[in-house]
Simulated assay, not measured.
Amino acid sequence: MHLFYTPDIAPAHPQYFLSEEESKHAIRVLRLEAGDEVQLIDGRGGFYNAVIHDAHPKRTILNITSVTPEFNKRNHYLHIAVAPTKNIERLEWFLEKATEIGIDEISLIITQRSERKEAKVDRLNKIITAAIKQSLKAYHPILNDAVKFNQLLALPFDGQKFIAHCEPGDRLDLRKVIDPQGRYLILIGPEGDFSPAEIELALESGFKPITLGEARLRTETAALEACFEVNFLNRL
Rank of each mutant, 00 (worst) to 15 (best):
A164H: 03
S135G: 01
P141F: 02
K148A: 10
D145W: 10
S135N: 04
Q151A: 14
L155S: 12
I163S: 05
H165L: 05
F162R: 01
L136A: 07
N144V: 00
F149V: 02
A146M: 04
I132R: 00
K148H: 14
H165S: 03
A164C: 05
Q151N: 14
K161V: 10
A138P: 06
A130E: 12
H140A: 10
L155H: 09
V147F: 04
C166I: 11
Q134S: 04
K161Y: 12
E167A: 15
D158C: 13
L155M: 13
A154I: 06
Q151P: 02
I132V: 14
K137C: 04
Q160R: 13
D145E: 15
Q160V: 12
Q151W: 03
A138I: 02
Q160I: 13
I132T: 11
V147Q: 14
I142M: 07
P156Q: 08
N150V: 00
I142Q: 08
I142T: 13
D145K: 13
I142H: 09
A131K: 01
F162P: 07
L155Y: 09
L136P: 00
A146H: 02
A130F: 04
N144A: 11
N144M: 10
K148F: 12
L143D: 05
F162V: 04
Q151F: 09
K148P: 01
